[in-house]
Amino acid sequence: MKGIIFNLLEEVITQAHGEDVWDSLLDAAQIAGAFTSLGNYPDEDLLKLVSAASLSLAQPPAAIIRWFGVRALPLLAQKYPIFFEKFKSTRPFILTLNGIIHPEVRKVYPGAEPPMFDFDNSSPDVLVMGYYSKRKLCALAEGFVEGAAAYFGEVVRINHPSCMIRGDSSCRLELSFLPVGSSAQCQNL
């Protein structure tokens, strides 16, 4: 896992709960925590931190991960505005993940293994997004999608009919975007 994810996690937790909480999570997870965005770190370090946060904040791990994604997205938009500023809504932005954003990630962070997505863009109402990653961090993907929708002033409804965590071969996320003010509901967290 790339160091930038750990840096984002640190920033999100510190913003929401203060530096002390981050310190205590590192202590609880027994991780030194000297993360640099250029480095590569074991995937289980992230899982340990998520478990520690789950205990400390009394939330299930998937909720922690998803929350992290929602809060990390605006930080990414601040750091890498170039990927965002061309778009006015979430759907076209998300469609650039495979073709533009992740190739750029691989250039700047050699050895990065971002997830693969496939898209069914045929329906105007629902964007179907397949998620493949050995890390099974579909909750993070959901969080990022939700965060992106908020960034573009939209609300997203996410349906997650098949999921690797539930034993399916891949995750399928059905996304419908609505302007803010519509009632939206997230299912299958």
Binding site: E19, D20, D23, A32, G33, A34, F35, T36, S37, L38, G39
Partner: peptide
């Protein structure tokens, strides 16, 4: 705590420089 954070930052910087 501050000393630990500083130490963490220093190590992260060294590692970043090495990379």
């Amino acid at each position: 705590r501050l000393r630990k954070r500083l130490e963490r930052e220093r190590r992260a910087r060294q590692e970043a420089e090495a990379i």
